[in-house]
């Protein structure tokens, strides 16, 4: 409402003149000469006002055209940004998958090394410590073979357990590529 009042102030001179002419038109005792004079003034003001109305319409139309053009440009840019964002998301996912595979391969290699080490330690313990004791106690050489077979059978489950544990640790420690990008 306040804005509407402020904008109407722009036409205050015209409003004042209209009030003045209205007042005169209600007066029945004005001489014909004065009526003619005021009528001429009114015509002049009206002509001016038409000119100004044309100018304001023209300026306003141009501003709207510019605004529309700017809006179109913004819309287009927004669409381009959305498309770039979508591409980024896809590329980010691809990158994330690749990183995950690399981590998995690295962890797999480490796990295999650890399992190999465990196998060697178990073999040494079996061969050097357990077998002589068991053979001495049971007098059966087949027991040593069963120990080695047990170690061989256990290698795969140990590998899986170690790999899973290491993978969990690796995933705990790293943030995603997206996190890093948008930090």
């Amino acid at each position: 409402m306040a804005k509407a009042v402020a904008q109407s102030d722009v036409f205050q001179a015209e409003i004042d003149f209209l009030k003045e002419v209205r007042k005169l038109s209600e007066d029945d005792n004005i001489p014909a000469e004065t009526v003619k004079e005021n009528y001429k003034k009114l015509c002049d003001k009206y002509e001016r006002l038409i000119g100004e109305a044309k100018l304001l319409t023209s300026v306003s139309d141009r501003l709207h055209a510019k605004l529309n053009e700017a809006n179109e440009k913004l819309k287009k840019q927004s669409e381009e940004i959305n498309k770039i964002n979508d591409d980024l998301k896809v590329n980010n996912q691809l990158l994330q998958d690749t990183i995950d595979q690399l981590v998995k391969a690295k962890v797999g290699r480490k796990a295999s090394s650890i399992v190999l080490l465990i196998a060697i330690i178990l073999f040494v313990i079996s061969e050097g410590l357990l077998e002589p004791i068991v053979e001495q106690k049971f007098g059966n050489e087949q027991v040593g073979f069963i120990f080695k077979l047990g170690i061989a059978i256990l290698l795969k489950p140990i590998d899986v357990i170690v790999e899973r544990y290491m993978m969990r640790q690796a995933l705990k420690g790293k943030s995603t590529v997206a996190d890093k990008l948008f930090k």
Binding site: Q7, V10, F11, A13, L55, L56, V59, S60, L63
Partner: peptide, 12 residues
């Protein structure tokens, strides 16, 4: 650059 109401003021 000017807005519509400024153009009326310029006329004045």
């Amino acid at each position: 650059y000017f807005n519509t109401s400024s153009s009326k003021c310029l006329v004045e």
